[in-house]
Design a binder for these strands. Structure first.
Length: 264
DNA sequence: TTCCATGTTCCGCA
DNA sequence: TTGCGGAACATGGA
């Protein structure tokens, strides 16, 4: 699930539940979920500290710590957070737990293990190491910059939007949504798009990501005119009523409406 | 049982 | 050298 809007929701959730509480202990339920640092060191770094704030960049979530450094979270394909009272077992597929003061705990859940927790001295360094580009909702990414970055790419527009080193935060579902609402075929090469279309894509991208975040990133709550609820065989296009089709673009299966998104 | 998945990373090729 | 596409990765639900 976790693309930019989902992670933005996790950030709000963490802000509302877990900030400024002392971490009394941590628990690692699967060592493989800890990356770039040993489990023991991560646990040492966290113990006794507080999560001071949260910073989201693309699909990454960071929580700067009271004594410096930051707790790093990435949710992969199936991550989630769960805050609750610290008695009994945490939810299924919990990989890491922060035990907090006053009998609470924050569980980091990841069913498929593609995801991570880690520690970073410096957030910018982590982003550079993983070649993470500008955040899709960053103020720095205005229409002109977007057109410049995206319009210089030779790959399919869908893969370009999903490429985290180009723009960070968009995954398979939201790339389909953005292209649908902009009326752009997913397989069109990015550098074949004209300036006007690129600016439209930027406008639509911003609107889609902001709206989705505001609605809690829950597909069921999105406007009916969105593609999101109709991804699948034999589904009608929410705009024209025609049939939605699937297409594989650089190994990822996407959905689009051939009538509303001509070309390719 | 086989296939597929909303993510990242690595590798081979142009 | 850089950018692109495909495959691998781990796990479990359909």
């Amino acid at each position: 699930m976790p693309e930019l809007p989902d992670v933005a929701v996790f950030k709000k959730y963490l802000d509302a539940t877990s900030l400024h509480q002392r971490i009394s202990a941590t628990e690692c339920l699967d060592e493989r979920f800890v990356k770039d640092i040993s489990r023991r060191k991560l646990q040492q770094r966290l113990k006794g500290q507080r999560l001071d704030a949260t910073v989201r960049h693309g699909k990454w979530l960071f929580a700067p710590l009271s004594d410096g450094g930051a707790f790093v979270m990435h949710f992969g394909m199936t991550g989630n957070l769960d805050y609750g009272s610290d008695d009994g077992d945490p939810p299924e597929h919990t990989r890491f737990v922060l035990h907090l003061a006053e009998g609470k705990r924050l569980a980091i859940i990841s069913q498929r293990m593609i995801g991570r927790v880690s520690w970073a001295e410096d957030i910018e360094t982590v982003l550079a190491e993983h070649d993470v580009g500008v955040d899709a909702l960053s103020d720095e990414l205005d229409a002109e910059t977007f057109a410049e970055i995206v319009g210089s790419r030779r790959g399919a527009i869908k893969s370009t939007l999903m490429n985290q080193s180009v723009i960070a935060g968009i995954g398979n579902v939201y790339s389909d949504e953005i292209l649908f609402q902009a009326g752009v075929h997913p397989a069109v090469r990015a550098n074949d798009l004209d300036e006007k279309t690129l600016r439209k894509l930027h406008r639509v991208m911003t609107r889609v990501l902001q709206t989705a975040t505001r609605k809690g990133a829950d597909a069921r709550d999105m406007p009916r005119t969105w593609l999101m609820g109709n991804r699948g065989d034999d589904e009608p296009c929410p705009r024209c009523g025609g049939e939605i089709e699937d297409i594989t673009v650089s190994g990822r299966r996407g959905w689009y409406c051939p009538r509303c998104q001509p070309g390719g």
